[in-house]
């Protein structure tokens, strides 16, 4: 326990000094917010603001500091970073999940997602001992999603741009794809989660990059793919990066679609539907060219400490507190 707490303390100091030396400003933004970015894949925590003189309001725990950090950059803050707590509801309590987790998020003005790979490699180097941890050491391997699908599943995505044809490929691989309609992304995920992700290289950190255009996100496009990457270390997903999109119409459209998906999904299950701020799209469209990276710090610490589970990395895991109270024994 002591070792873990001290390791985190050292890790945070090292991260801060890494970014401070490069001229980034550390920022501290709220974790409690009256609006969130609409993200249909993330379930949220809500609580109520009560005050005798003001109308009460629903507030949300942020699933990422992005909503505030991007506003600061749009207002001319330059490159910034933050270490903060983030919250995702309905996540499994498991060996690499906790509903509350620590996130390192950094945005570099003037960078694209390729520059962010180099920066993240330098960050890793600053956190590694001189010897050992060879499977964490940069340079990171890089593979495009298309190439990974070809190698691990034998699927050529170029030839299967339509859902029906990708579903035939999935069936050829022995997966059962029901006849009910589903999106290209869902069919892609059936193949990706079964054959590709579990078999990604674990000997070195791996940047999985160039996401297919059908997997929508707010990263800039280049040809048929999106300028986004995820970093896998020992097979565990630890970071996500975008070359940030800055087209107001596209962002607006995306948020409207995401909000509709979110409402569709949650009105049935009764889970939280967060308020959103319609002026966000215009704000985010005014960003200077920049690239943002989010790293799960608990997972990074787990990997640096040679552990395979967050047990013992998160000092007070929610699963433990739910079953036996929040006193360490």
């Amino acid at each position: 326990m002591k070792e873990t707490a001290r390791f985190r303390s050292w890790m945070n100091r090292t991260i801060r000094s890494f970014f401070d030396q490069k001229g980034y400003t550390e920022v501290d933004t709220p974790i409690l917010s009256p609006t969130l970015i609409p993200e249909s894949t993330i379930e949220n925590f809500a609580t109520r603001f009560e005050n005798p003189f003001l109308p009460s309001a629903e507030l949300y725990l942020v699933p990422s500091p992005e909503i505030f950090m991007k506003q600061l950059i749009a207002d001319g803050m330059g490159s910034i970073y933050q270490i903060s707590h983030c919250f995702r509801n309905s996540e499994q309590l498991g060996h690499i999940h906790n509903p509350e987790f620590s996130m390192l998020e950094y945005y570099t003005v003037g960078f694209d997602e390729q520059d962010s790979i180099t920066l993240t490699e330098q960050l890793f180097s600053s956190l590694l001992p001189e010897t050992g941890c060879e499977d964490l050491r940069p340079p990171f391997d890089r593979i495009s999603v298309q190439e990974a699908m070809r190698i691990h599943a034998g699927v050529d995505l170029e030839k299967h741009q339509r859902q029906a044809s990708l579903a035939d490929e999935a069936r050829r691989l022995g997966l059962s794809v029901p006849d009910e309609p589903e999106s290209w992304e869902e069919t892609f995920n059936r193949i990706f989660l079964t054959f590709v992700e579990p078999n990604l290289c674990k000997d070195r950190p791996l940047v999985l990059e160039k996401y297919p255009r059908q997997i929508e996100c707010l990263a800039n496009m280049e040809g048929n793919y999106r300028k986004r990457w995820e970093l896998y270390v020992r097979g565990v997903e630890v970071a996500n990066c975008y070359d940030e999109l800055r087209d107001q119409d596209v962002i607006e459209r995306y948020y409207i679609d995401e909000y509709a998906r979110l409402v569709g999904k949650r009105s049935e299950s009764g889970s939280v539907i967060p308020d959103t701020d319609p002026s966000l799209a215009a704000k985010f469209a005014s960003l200077p060219p920049c690239s943002g990276v989010a790293i799960g710090l608990d997972r990074l610490q787990m990997l640096l400490m040679g552990k395979t589970s967050l047990e013992g990395v998160i000092l007070f895991p929610l699963s433990g507190m739910l079953t036996s109270g929040n006193t360490r024994n």
Binding site: T41, E91, E182, S183, I215
Partner: peptide, 9 residues
Amino acid sequence: EFVNPGKGS
């Protein structure tokens, strides 16, 4: 293990 890889299910 539940995975929430992206949009949709």
